[in-house]
């Protein structure tokens, strides 16, 4: 089987497991919707203020939703030693990284696909623009590139829930700021050309962290 067939087999296994328990998607979705609801209730009355703070609310919510999602990513692998079972299989460690990363990307995109329209509905801010949808996708790829690596790293530690945000959030600051900027400019009706620089930063971040995480994953999961 090729690299991608095995990656898809890992993702399919995670998807099947998630469909049985709905542990990740439902808990992250409830968290995301609650945060959105709280902020829109707090600022929603003032349309102008809401438009100003919307990008920050959106991306703070997605960043913390990512932390919540990644903190669960390697938990099933640690139960009953399944990660060791995977490591004993004739696949490269990169297959494990790509498979787990693809699962996390899928779960995050499902949450965001529900959260974005919900945010638009509650806040009455037009966040369903092509620019914001695209920046959500590329920023999530960056989140997943970093989050999957740190999720594997923190899975071996006792204080997993503490370690992951401490490692993850400082690293994703560059794409978090870029995503907020893109969203801000998109909401003020700026053309695509004015967003290009920020997209470039996010794209470069994604490429660098996908490559670095892919290369160092072996050292992270092997004791």
């Amino acid at each position: 089987m090729t690299f991608w067939n095995k990656v898809i087999a890992i993702t399919w296994k995670d998807w099947l497991s998630e469909m049985r328990t709905r542990e990740v998607v439902s808990s992250v979705l409830v968290f995301t919707l609650l945060v959105i609801l709280i902020f829109t209730l707090a600022f929603g009355a003032d349309r102008e203020l809401m438009t100003t703070v919307a990008p920050g609310i959106l991306w703070a919510t997605f960043a913390f939703a990512g932390v919540l999602s990644f903190s669960r990513s390697f938990v099933p692998e640690k139960e009953h030693g399944c990660l060791e079972g995977l490591m004993a299989a004739p696949i490269s460690r990169e297959v494990i990284y790509a498979g787990k990363g693809l699962s996390s990307l899928l779960f995050m995109l499902i949450v965001e696909a529900i959260a974005l329209p919900a945010f638009a509905f509650f806040s009455n801010v037009p966040v369903l623009s092509p620019q914001i949808i695209l920046v959500t996708f590329v920023t999530t790829v960056g989140f997943v590139a970093v989050g999957t690596l740190f999720s594997a790293l923190s899975a071996n530690t006792r204080a997993r829930e503490m370690v992951l945000p401490v490692l993850f959030l400082p690293i994703v600051i560059p794409i978090l700021i870029s995503a907020i900027k893109v969203s801000e400019l998109a909401l003020t009706g700026e053309p695509w050309s004015n967003l290009f620089t920020w997209f470039q930063i996010i794209g470069a971040f994604d490429l660098v962290f996908l490559a670095v995480s892919y290369l160092v994953f072996d050292f992270v999961i092997v004791e």
């Binding site: 089987m1 067939n5 095995k6 087999a9 296994k13 099947l16 497991s17 049985r20 328990t21 099933p76 139960e79 009953h80 030693g81 399944c82 060791e84 079972g85 995977l86 004993a88 299989a89 004739p90 696949i91």
Partner: peptide, 23 residues
């Protein structure tokens, strides 16, 4: 080993199918 390396949320068949794909 004393660890089963099996995923609790999957059926035994799904587990074995998953590992047979890996191998």
């Amino acid at each position: 080993t004393h660890q089963t390396f099996l995923y609790g949320n999957l059926t035994a068949y799904e587990n074995l199918e998953f590992y047979s794909r890996m191998f």
